[in-house]
Design a protein around this nucleic acid. Structure first.
Lengths: 218, 218
DNA sequence: CGTGCCTTTGAGAAATATCAAAGCCTGTGG
DNA sequence: CCACAGGCTTTGATATTTCTCAAAGGCACG
């Protein structure tokens, strides 16, 4: 896209600040806009019929989201909450067709984002179906680290607050089990966790926990 | 689409018979074609790094599939096997763009299929994350019934052979547990299962099992 | 008409949830 | 600036679910 084209697209966007914990949109709402996350991190969540919250995925800055109309949906299938204070660009859905036809590559870029999300969902299904809780928790922490990590001199820190409860909602387990696992990993110097922040010290060992079925406990 | 257009599209397709158990395409292969399932039922499967098979979904007749290039993928992300003898229409991917531009609504129909699949994956993630094994198995049988059922005078029969192992691969459990559950449900006249076929007698009670956490056993 | 899956069922083991209680942060409001 | 309330965390004890191991019988297909 040329600089001119880009300016044109940006001129049509509205900018919005979303405070931590507030929704950008909620499940079931009319899918009237699509978005770009300029800064911050989003948590995408759904409620099942029992009312249990399940975290579908997290979105890192720089990504388009709320593209559901591109798949022919009228409403958002999940809610998006700000995991930290966020800055989002907002376009009305009516501009979607204009952008798609005017800018070569716009639609295909958007569909690539969709593909990424679909792939990630597929991976989660595999994990949820085949892994034990310990492995799922390790996978979840690793995914947060990869997608939302900031490098520090001692390891990688996840860029937003992550409670035991959040991890249990990502893995379909309980905060108690997660707490026990994290405590153990902290004792083993695989990670550090304080002030609701998680700091991965040894990604390789965490990666191993993703595979091993049962081994050196303690 | 007009009759003429339809004829044109069909003229460009190749017809193929796929015997039970054989693949239409396999995970990782070049996504060179897209397909329409004219008759039969497909099982879409993936292998995780450990080599465990996981059944992602089943495809009923009448649906487009192998649309991964529409999301910008070069390879198929999963394998599709014939659950019974299948008849498929095959088009080379190169025709995708022609069809999309020539036939208003072709692309949007295809994306609706993608959306359906994404929704189904989302539901499975919710189920896998929050439900107990009994509930997951009930959900799996119910989904097979809804998507692949044939009405009979006593209930609904699933249109292809379903072993305990297959259900365990759909739910991430073991064939032993599935066997115990199906035996119980058979005793309770919720379903019948013989010759590797499952016949649901009482969908309502099965639906209830989807929600209840623990109750009248035996 | 046998061989190889598929199924059933029991017994015991293991993983994880549930229940319970106490201490700790953190952010709030006085 | 301090005290407090509510959510977060840790940890133990116990309960429950589900898996694993084992063995036997059945059925289907070649």
């Amino acid at each position: 896209m040329s600089a001119d084209q880009l300016r044109h697209v940006l001129d049509l966007a509205r900018l919005r600040r979303v405070p931590t914990g507030k929704p950008v949109f909620e499940e079931g709402e009319d899918a009237s806009h699509f978005f770009l996350l300029l800064d911050g991190h989003l948590s995408v969540e759904r409620l099942n019929t029992e009312g249990d919250k399940v975290i579908s995925l997290h979105i890192p800055p720089g990504q388009l989201f709320g593209l559901d109309r591109a798949l022919g949906r009228d409403t958002y299938p999940a809610s998006a909450y700000a995991a930290v204070e966020c800055i989002v660009l907002i376009w009305p859905m009516s501009l979607w067709d204009d952008f798609s036809t005017q800018y070569e590559g716009f639609a295909s870029e958007a569909y690539k984002v969709v593909d990424q999300r679909v792939s990630e969902m597929n991976n989660r299904i595999m994990e949820l179906a085949t892994q034990h809780v310990e492995q799922k928790v390790a996978s979840a922490v690793l995914r947060l680290m990869e997608q939302h990590g900031r490098n520090t001199d001692t390891g990688v820190q996840i860029a937003f607050r992550v409670t035991r409860k959040i991890i249990s909602e990502m893995t379909g387990s309980t905060l108690h089990t997660v707490s026990r696992l994290l405590s153990r990993w902290e004792r083993q110097r695989i990670l550090r966790s304080a002030h609701r922040h998680i700091h991965v010290l040894d990604p390789v060992r965490l990666e191993n926990l993703t595979r091993e079925s049962a081994a050196d406990q303690r």
